[in-house]
Nucleic acid binder design. Structure first.
Lengths: 327, 327
DNA sequence: CTGAAAGCGCTAACAA
DNA sequence: TTGTTAGCGCTTTCAG
């Protein structure tokens, strides 16, 4: 590969001058600059980012560590972060943790070794902030805020749940069920609470029989909704903790000829890509991935600029209600 | 950040010794090794991959350049490449070109600057192999083979098309239409030819009225199939160039109450993630993304090992027929 | 405006 | 077994 020394030799100048010219610095005569520029093109010179990073102590790379990029949700986040990073002159390294906390640690370590200038992390599960702080690198966590020194960004689950439930109430549904995720997950708890409060605020009572926790799968939604239909007073609407669960409910309704939305309102959470397919057309609370990604990057840049001081940002991104044909 | 010099100072040895110990080399006494190892952990040492890359002239990074990672197809490929790379000790840098040839060039340039050890590229459109060869970096192209010196890998479009058409024939359909992509695209041409040949081999004639080219969108499939139903002899089955088009056809059939698969067989190509949803359940020719990704990485490693000599690999990955409820 | 020289953090000869 | 030294390719003082 061609180096600045090669160019310097051909140009008959020192390689410091080549560096200056190539970096558009003012203290080079326009003659030498032009000579060097032309030579660089002619010789097919490609700057060595590694060498530059070493001396500048800045790689202009950032890391995005997510559980699974093939998950449409993270894929969208990846796109958003990527394009925002690009605009800011950064290159993104994407890592998959496969929902495995150990692999997450491993990936973070590798990214630190790669000397990325900052990290955006979607943790796989409960995690110890101390570990992240110890890495001593600017970091933004896609997660609910903790009492530690890290910066967080996430969608406003409370507002989203309120939107969904209020919408169902407004549509005239009376027995609104909640089919959630893992009972202990913080996001689930926030959503559940908002669900209960919104019902009460609208003069409806939250029937514990209409609340269910479980897995985030289509089968789980199908199964759990099926159980509820056997109640003496079955639900006439369901707020699901994510779209996959809602898809399971929808599936059950189709198979058992329950007319949607006439006899059953269904609303999901996330707005995954196929929610909007004509065959599905699911009403849902959209997590705006583009905004999440973009704001995460902006927050990271802020964090990087004031590093090693932590900016301790707590950002909530507003969700959007997508009313489609299931409500 | 802690460097090997810091450790050397504390250990009272030269930093070369620290380097040796940290790299598990045999020529270090077990005493000093242990001392250094312990110190490294205690001091929270993280090796600097950038410095190592500079001296080793090998970054242990590879690039994956695709049009759009949020497209489920590329997301799956990304996952597969990623995990294969990881096993081989490489970190992957993923770039999006947004289907823009100019951006593709830009991204490739950036990856060369980053001194990745190799590149896996899914080109956005017709591209000039000379440009890639000029970059002088090991590269694998996800594309049909050209007459140049690059290595290629892709799914066997011909075999896939044959599978699909043969399957429709076996199911008893007689007037099988082809709703393809852009007429000039090579993949489209291969598929079209295989479609025609398979029909002939099975004693059916290919009616030009049943052949259509156009965009890769749901609307396009809906629209083009709608036209065909107005023929004097409309098709009783459709082979679509991708699943999105097939979805459009399916949509049209539902709206016009054409029973599928009784009066209309539909088969797509790609097996995108939602093809298997119970609500869709589309028969399709699956491009095994996991195999594509993994084999691409293996091919790349091969290419890197024999670089600068080009290995000129031409790899076809066998597709799989997924028979679901639309045929 | 340009050159010389130091050094980013590390590996890899070559000596000792 | 260890230390010394010379770089990897580049940026950045500091002189000139």
């Amino acid at each position: 590969m061609i180096t600045i020394k090669d160019i310097a030799d051909r140009a008959g100048v020192s390689y410091a001058t080549v560096s200056r010219a190539l970096n558009n610095r003012s203290d080079v005569s326009s003659n030498t600059r032009k000579l060097i520029m032309d030579l660089a093109v002619e010789m097919g010179y490609q700057p060595n980012a590694i060498a530059r990073s070493l001396v500048k102590r800045k790689s202009m790379n950032i890391a995005l560590v997510v559980p699974d990029v093939s998950n449409p949700f993270f894929a969208d986040i990846t796109m958003a972060v990527n394009s925002a990073a690009e605009k800011a002159g950064y290159t993104t390294m994407v890592c998959n943790t496969g929902w495995d906390p150990q692999k997450e640690q491993e990936k973070l370590r590798i990214m630190v070794e790669q000397r990325v200038d900052g990290i955006i992390l979607k943790p796989t599960g409960f995690f110890k902030p101390e570990i992240l702080e110890a890495y001593n690198v600017p970091i933004i966590v896609l997660w609910h805020a903790g009492e530690d020194d890290l910066s967080y960004i996430e969608v406003d689950h409370e507002a989203g749940s309120r939107m969904a439930v209020k919408h169902l109430v407004d549509r005239g549904y009376k027995r609104i069920a909640y089919i959630g995720g893992q009972e202990t997950s913080p996001a689930n708890q926030i959503r559940l609470l908002a669900y209960q409060q919104t019902l009460q605020e609208n003069g409806l009572k939250a029937d514990p029989k209409l609340i269910s926790f479980g897995g985030f799968s289509l089968e789980s939604g199908y199964e759990r909704f099926g159980q509820m239909t056997k109640l003496q007073q079955p639900p006439d609407a369901v707020f699901c903790s994510n779209d996959i669960i809602a898809l399971g409910v929808l599936q059950y309704a189709r198979e058992h000829e329950i007319p949607v939305p006439a006899k059953l309102g269904i609303i999901g959470f996330d707005d995954i890509n196929y929610a909007s397919l004509p065959q599905i057309n699911l009403s849902t609370v959209s997590q705006p991935r583009d905004k999440l990604g973009e704001q995460a990057l902006n927050a990271l840049i802020h964090e990087m600029e004031s590093f090693p001081e932590r900016t301790r940002q707590r950002i909530l991104v507003a969700p959007e209600l997508k009313v489609r044909s299931t409500t």
